[in-house]
Computed example of a mutant assay.
Amino acid sequence: MHDLILKNGVIVDGTGAAQFRGDVAVRDGVIVEVGEVSGPARRTLDAEGAVVTPGFVDIHTHYDGQVSWDSVLAPSSINGVTSTAMGNCGVGFAPARVEKHDWLINLLEGVEDIPGTALAEGLTWDWESFPDYLNALAKRRYTMDIGAHIPHAALRAFVMGDAGGDHTAV
């Protein structure tokens, strides 16, 4: 027995093949049949009028702060993204010494126009090193898979202090 069958959807499988109308069966979190599905399911959803696709991967996001307070990670998750990467553009919040918290918030606000007030209120800062940051994220649950690049600006500030942000420093 399937756990879920999506019926009557327009399937775009991501391979470049032409779209087609069909069903998708899922068992134990794995797609087991596509097209003409056999057998019953615990739950059936009518996908009439909907497009059924694999989840999208967003390789460039700035959820670095938002992941510490938001498990939904909208708008990506509500637009079909199932995996995301953050730490792009060299900005992020780990590693982070306490005295650099405001500096990192101001940097992300300046580079990405993300409101510093939201970051200051939302960031939990229950980390210092990058492994601590990953461990803090691992304690939370999210609507999609997340991956993190180590942001070079945060790393330079962590290792070099103020000289890490000074292009004239030798």
Rank of each mutant, 00 (worst) to 15 (best):
D3N: 13
D3A: 09
L4F: 10
L4E: 07
L4P: 03
L6H: 00
V10T: 15
I11A: 02
V12L: 15
V12K: 02
G14R: 09
A17Q: 13
A18Y: 06
F20M: 10
F20G: 07
D23L: 08
V24A: 06
V24F: 06
V24P: 03
A25E: 04
V26N: 07
V26R: 05
R27I: 04
V30C: 12
G35N: 10
E36C: 05
V37R: 08
V37F: 09
A41V: 09
R42D: 14
R43A: 13
L45M: 14
D46Q: 10
D46F: 10
A47I: 05
E48N: 12
E48K: 13
E48I: 01
A50V: 05
V51A: 14
V52M: 07
T53R: 09
P54Y: 11
P54S: 11
G55C: 10
V57Q: 06
V57T: 12
H60W: 00
Q66V: 11
W69S: 03
D70H: 06
D70R: 01
V72S: 13
S76C: 10
S76V: 02
I78A: 12
I78P: 01
I78D: 11
I78F: 13
V81R: 01
V81I: 15
T82H: 06
T82G: 03
T84P: 01
A85E: 00
A85Q: 07
G90L: 00
F93T: 03
P95H: 06
P95G: 07
P95D: 06
P95M: 08
A96L: 02
R97C: 01
E99S: 11
H101V: 12
D102P: 00
L104K: 06
N106T: 08
L107H: 00
L107K: 02
L108A: 04
E109H: 08
E109A: 15
G110Y: 08
E112V: 04
E112K: 08
E112D: 13
D113I: 04
G116L: 07
T117I: 13
A118P: 00
L119Y: 04
L119F: 04
A120S: 13
E121M: 11
T124I: 03
W125T: 04
W127D: 06
W127R: 01
E128T: 15
S129L: 12
F130P: 00
P131D: 12
D132H: 11
L134S: 00
L134N: 01
A136M: 12
L137C: 14
K139I: 02
R140F: 07
Y142T: 07
Y142N: 03
Y142F: 15
T143A: 15
I146K: 04
A148K: 01
A148F: 10
A148Y: 03
I150Q: 10
I150A: 06
H152K: 00
H152F: 14
A153K: 01
A154G: 05
F158H: 15
D162Y: 05
A163D: 12
A163F: 03
A163K: 09
G164V: 04
G165L: 15
G165V: 11
T168C: 09
A169N: 07
A169E: 08
V170H: 12
V170R: 14
